[in-house]
């Protein structure tokens, strides 16, 4: 009897989480938990066999996501989630492989892997949590830190031009590209479902609040204030060109489902190429 009463109190998402690892290590008001919820919803929508789903992360606050979702999950080294995931996927095409990692992890130390996996159109869904800073290591400049924003390694304000993540992914060859904030959970979930269904390199940027580190260093440490700010600054425009919508420190954040142009993925092209050769040999 006691058992059933426990079951009644079980959060619907719990069956997808490693409950024995809760509570998680993230700060209050951190967007990462919301991102997990949207992710689970997206996978349900896409009707993916959860046992086949593989989650790969690099290192960082975001990198810890793989440790909380109860699926086959891999916490790899800083920046190397994508090539690890490519190996997983290419060696077993039945697996659905998702990379969930931070902006520093995927675009600084791992930037080279990202553009090449996008170019090859490896069948991966890459979800990048952009909190504009290195969270885990205490607030250093990321390749996404807006000009003028402060970090522990940009004590006088950042003067480096940041990457526009969706622009980089689209230019490199991603076949599905979207950007949402953590707050747009429904639309984010829809996008995750679409990304999972795209047989190719799908990229989703989630603009996500980091009140503790980004917020504190930039006079926005109030978590609610930060999430409201993301709401107020964002504007949905699905027809926007992803290469033309960089994010600034206080300006508009254009969000949407920007690009969905399927093309043969790496494995399909590989197979096709070999098939042609085989035919030639057999002649």
């Amino acid at each position: 009897m006691k058992k059933s009463s426990i079951e009644i109190n079980k959060h619907p998402i719990d069956k997808y989480l490693r409950r024995d690892r809760m509570p998680h290590i993230w700060c209050p008001g951190c967007g990462l938990g919301m991102d997990i919820t949207a992710f689970i919803e997206g996978t349900k929508q896409a009707n993916i066999d959860m046992n086949n789903m593989q989650i790969v992360s690099g290192i960082g606050c975001t990198g810890r996501i793989s440790g909380y979702i109860k699926l086959d999950a891999y916490h790899t080294t800083h920046g190397r989630a994508i090539p690890f995931a490519s190996g997983l996927k290419l060696a077993n095409r039945n697996l659905t492989v998702v990379v969930f990692s931070g902006d520093g992890d995927l675009f600084a130390i791992g930037g080279n892997h990202l553009i090449h996996a996008a170019r090859r159109n490896v069948d991966l869904t890459v979800i990048c949590v952009n909190n504009f800073i290195y969270g885990m290591t205490g607030g250093q400049t990321a390749p996404t830190t807006p000009v003028g924003a402060f970090s522990s390694t940009a004590p006088y304000g950042n003067f480096e031009k940041p990457f526009n993540l969706v622009g980089v992914a689209a230019s490199a060859g991603a076949s599905y590209v979207a950007r949402w904030t953590s707050l747009h959970t429904k639309r984010l979930a829809n996008s995750i479902a679409k990304a999972l269904s795209n047989k190719g390199f799908s990229f989703i940027e989630i603009v996500s609040p980091c009140p503790t580190v980004f917020g504190r260093k930039n006079n926005r440490s109030d978590a609610l204030g930060l999430i409201n700010e993301l709401r107020d600054r964002s504007r949905i425009d699905n027809s926007a060109n992803p290469t033309e919508i960089p994010i600034t420190n206080y300006g508009e954040i254009v969000i949407g489902d920007f690009l969905n142009e399927p093309r043969p993925c790496f494995s399909e092209s590989f197979e096709e190429g070999i098939k042609k050769t085989k035919e030639r040999i057999e002649k």
């Binding site: 891999y74 920046g79 190397r80 690890f84 995931a85 077993n92 697996l95 080279n112 892997h113």
Partner: peptide, 24 residues
Amino acid sequence: GVFIQFEDEIASMAGILGASWAGA
């Protein structure tokens, strides 16, 4: 089987670890 020329050796090493977890 699968052959892939990665973008560098860092990716190559990460890639073969991933492939190994996939059972190859």
